[in-house]
Design a protein around this nucleic acid. Structure first.
Length: 852
RNA sequence: GGGGCUAUAGCUCAGUUGGCUAGAGCGCAGCAUUCACAUUGCUGAGGCCCAUGGUUCGAGUCCAUGUAGCCCCACCA
């Protein structure tokens, strides 16, 4: 035997993957309907987590299935430079060596990170192979590849020319530890306990005062107004007057703005345009100056006398409070809960700081995207994500694409050294200073937000606009991703795709939920509940992991990682393996031969296959992979292994067995690629052939009458088994009378039913098998009769219930009138059958307890 | 405040456009075991499908309200 007793994945997986890769089957074929999907690029520097495993599994199932259907599948892998993420990891490495990013020049740092990523790149590529992902490695793309950079520049240029790019001094979300700004959606907000201080602001003319409430007293040094609501009677006479700002004695105006909530706090708000988004907007409306109090290092830059400057924000806050207390301006403080933005990486409080940045005027792009989405050009699974995306796009804000890090694509913009307002687009980013028209321009030191380049992924990887791949495979057939990327990535791919190519980037979006631990908690290093997919593969095999995470999977819902399901997958794989072993030991030739059905069970299994095959395809086509898997699982385990193989042991129909195995292997292949290909290769089912690109197999349908005969024999066998177990009888004989079907299946019934013999006999012997409707008797011993009667009573009560409910249904004239005819006639047939069974059961009971 | 999701067996979850006796895996109970497979086979127990109301011949499925839990966005002076 070539097949070992149990399937040991570690012996085969690497070789099988290498075989596929070497034979070039991952690349698209020349013929067939195009089917395309591009992998959401994982961080080139990281390890794959369970979410990646799920995502790759879903995509690979789709890709493999469409290959089996004979389509030309483009399944494109890639990696993301993950700008900020990676730089943070690298900075941690530097920290360990007692160094910091500021010890190196920009160029040197870039090079070091580049090498760092290169070294680790192989790691994650190996992991993708271990997952069995059938990606076309020849089209592998990295987000810093020249082609991608060129795309990013082309897109930026197009926006620049069309005035969709602007540079503005805006409030940006700044992490003072990492020294970079973030987009709004990258800020992570947390509820926190804080304090609301009330501060007295005296009017300059001495006619009174206004009390303002604030959670950030340190920013008062940069106040440039106090705002009240125009309809607030308390302050209506003060609007237009000025206030003498405590501590600095600067005079600032009292303004009226609808933004102020009369009911909140004191109804008066200090306005600090340099450190608060709403204040900034009010400042713009009222033409207020902005005074920065906090620097990019998170230290106060403002001083009163020699106080405050150089203090951290928190120290400054305390210091300002003390100063206000000393001078009697602080009139109250209370506790409050508010949400505070943090750096999603290091937890540092995000400071809104004024900074010149590049922005994309995103509204026109969002509008186009909205129209496409509303018109249903993209299918969403689950559908509810469409609505969510629409809401997001309706309220979208301009996109800050500048990042103050080195690990990324340099922004191709240069600033006139003499005229700061004069910016030009130029791609000579490897030069710090360029000369154009005798003027010197200095390169913007910033790089693009990683999402800016990765949002071009669908068309950039395919080589927009001229590559054949783009023409053949755009828009993509499928985009599979975690739902957490709906806003940061999916929305932007749709916007940029439409903007650049004029077409949606993908036709279908499948969004999976997050993988949690078994208690539904997020996997996190600090809780210690993380399961590494590579460990799971080492323990149970790649196929088992795939089955474990895909079965029961539905779009949009979080799912726990349940090891028992992976074990279930492993067990199933072993079952499949052992079916193959059985065939290996009993069949001489695995060549294709024409299939003929001789027996009732041959016809039965062919019908089971055909039914399974149809539903399988329906479910696979609609991305209901879990349903499809369950179908094959039951076909292979229950129908094929437990019934067909068992029943055919005495007289095996060998060509049919071979065909059934082949058909099963093809269908299960997307779910269990390694074991199915291993069996295919080991049994040399066909020299030179690979399972991975074998077409789905259709066998002839079985004869209905023949097939039904086996179904009734099967239910007889089930009844025998059940009865023997229920009565506890041992060594029982089955008798039948005038039952040619039973007679012809006598050997099989005896073998599978667990009797000691099946023979023609006199009616009245033993107890009757009424449920399956044959005139058969089991000669159970006397002690077992009591159990038998109990069981009969249970069956009778169940059957009565059923008869009653069928009666009720058919006695309802509206049901007869309005329900479809086939349902009504089906109900009638069921009632007949049920009444017959009930009668038999009652008769049988009378025989044993006639007095009742 | 706005939007979205979830509630089905002890656990984790399926359940296509409403259709008749609601499924799976694991777990549990019992029985078996020289057979391709103990990563096994066989039998079985276990469910007011969150609640109430509605639509319908018919509701786990559709609608409304409520309860409980979760997520996202906005606000938070």
């Amino acid at each position: 035997m070539k097949l070992a007793k149990t399937y040991q994945p570690e012996l085969y997986e690497a070789d099988i993957y290498a075989l596929w890769e070497k034979s070039g089957v991952f690349a698209p074929t020349e013929q067939g309907e195009p089917y395309s999907l591009v992998v959401p690029p994982p961080n080139a520097n990281g390890n794959l987590h369970m979410g990646h495993a799920l995502s790759f599994a879903m995509q690979d199932i789709a890709a493999r299935y469409h290959r089996l259907k004979g389509e030309r599948v483009a399944f494109i892998p890639g990696a993301d430079h993950a700008g900020f993420e990676t730089q943070v990891v690298f900075e941690r490495e530097l920290e360990k060596q007692g160094k910091s990013r500021f010890d190196y020049s920009r160029e040197s740092l870039y090079e070091q990170i580049y090498n760092f990523v290169e070294q680790n790149k192989e790691n994650f590529q190996t992991q993708i192979r271990k997952l069995g992902a059938s990606v076309d490695w020849t089209s592998y793309t990295f987000t810093l590849d020249d082609s991608i950079v060129k795309q990013a520049y082309a897109t930026f240029k197009k926006m620049w020319d069309e005035n969709l790019i602007y540079r503005g001094e805006r409030l940006v979300n700044f992490c003072t530890k990492h020294g970079t700004a973030f987009a709004d959606i990258e800020v992570s907000y947390q509820e926190e306990q804080g304090k609301l201080w009330k501060i007295r602001y005296p009017l300059s003319d001495g006619s009174g005062e206004i009390v303002v409430a604030t959670t950030r007293p340190e920013t008062m040094l940069g106040d440039t107004a106090v705002a009240v609501h125009p309809k607030d009677n308390r302050y209506v006479g003060m609007v237009g007057k000025t206030i003498k700002l405590p501590l600095t004695n600067r005079e600032i105006p009292i303004i009226a703005d609808e933004y102020v909530d009369i009911a909140y706090g004191t109804g008066a708000v200090k306005i600090t345009p340099a450190h608060d988004q709403n204040d900034f907007e009010i400042g713009q409306r009222h033409d207020l100056p902005s005074i920065s109090v906090i620097g990019f290092d998170g230290k106060l830059v403002h001083s009163v006398g020699d106080r405050f400057r150089g203090l951290s924000v928190l120290e400054g806050r305390e210091s300002v409070i003390n100063a206000l207390k000393e001078s009697g301006y602080l009139v109250g403080e209370e506790e409050l809960t508010h949400s505070v933005g943090h750096c999603y990486k290091c937890g540092t409080v995000i400071e809104p700081l004024l900074k010149e940045q590049w922005f994309i005027d995103i509204k026109p792009l969002a509008q186009t995207a909205l129209e496409s989405i509303r018109e249903g050009e993209i299918d969403f699974l689950p559908e509810s994500k469409r609505t969510q995306l629409e809401r997001y796009l309706e309220n979208i804000k301009d996109w800050n694409i500048s990042r103050q890090i080195v690990w990324g694509i340099p922004i191709p913009a240069f600033q006139n050294e003499e005229d700061p307002a004069d910016w030009i687009y130029d791609e000579r980013v490897n030069q710090e200073v360029i000369t154009v028209n005798n003027k010197h321009y200095r390169r913007d030191p910033d790089v693009f937000d990683t999402w800016f380049s990765s949002s071009s992924w669908p068309y950039a990887t395919l080589g927009f606009p001229d590559n054949q791949a783009f023409k053949d495979f755009y828009p993509l057939s499928l985009m599979e991703s975690g739902f957490d990327l709906l806003y940061p990535w999916l929305s932007r791919m749709i916007m940029l795709g439409l903007y650049v190519t004029g077409e949606i980037p993908f036709k279908k979006v499948y969004l999976h939920g997050m993988i949690t631990d078994e208690q539904g908690r997020k996997m996190s290093k600090s809780i210690g509940n993380v399961t590494d997919p590579m460990e799971a593969i080492a323990k149970f095999g790649s196929d088992a992991l795939r089955i474990g995470i895909v079965s029961g999977q539905t779009p949009g819902n979080n799912q726990p990682y349940v090891e028992a399901k992976v074990i279930g997958g492993r067990n199933f794989i072993n079952k499949l393996w052992n079916i193959a072993r059985y065939l290996e030991g009993n069949i001489e030739s695995f060549e294709d031969k024409s299939v003929e059905a001789y027996s009732a069970i041959d016809n039965w299994i062919l019908n089971r296959l055909s039914t399974t095959r149809n539903s399988y395809q329906k479910n696979m086509d609609s991305y209901r992979f879990s349903e499809a898997y369950e179908l094959i699982y039951h076909f292979i385990w229950d129908d094929l292994a437990d019934w067909y193989v068992e029943a055919s042991k005495s007289e095996p129909n060998k060509p049919l067995l071979v065909s059934l195995l082949k058909a099963s292997l093809v269908m299960i292949h997307p779910f269990a690629p390694f074991v199915s290909e291993t069996i295919w290769q080991t049994l040399v089912l066909n020299q030179d052939s690979l399972l991975i690109n074998h077409p789905l197999i259709d066998l002839p349908k079985g004869d209905r009458v023949q097939s039904d005969r086996f179904d009734s024999i099967k239910s007889l066998i089930l009844e025998i088994r059940s009865l023997i177990k229920a009565t506890g009888a041992a060594k029982v004989k089955l008798y039948y009378r005038n039952e040619p079907l039973v007679a012809s299946f006598a050997t099989l019934i005896n073998q599978l039913g667990g009797t000691i013999s099946v023979e023609d006999g006199e009616p009245g012997q033993g107890v009757a098998l009424v449920a399956s409707g044959f005139s058969c008797w089991l000669d159970i011993d006397q002690e077992a009769i009591d159990h038998y009667v109990t069981r009969l009573e249970k069956l009778i009560s169940e059957e009565q219930k059923r008869t009653r409910s069928l009666h009720d249904r058919l006695n309802n004239p509206k049901y007869i009138e309005q329900a479809p005819e086939n349902l009504v006639s089906e109900s009638r047939a069921q009632l007949n059958e049920s009444e017959q069974t009930l009668e038999n059961l009652l008769d049988e009971k009378m025989r044993f307890s006639p007095r009742q």
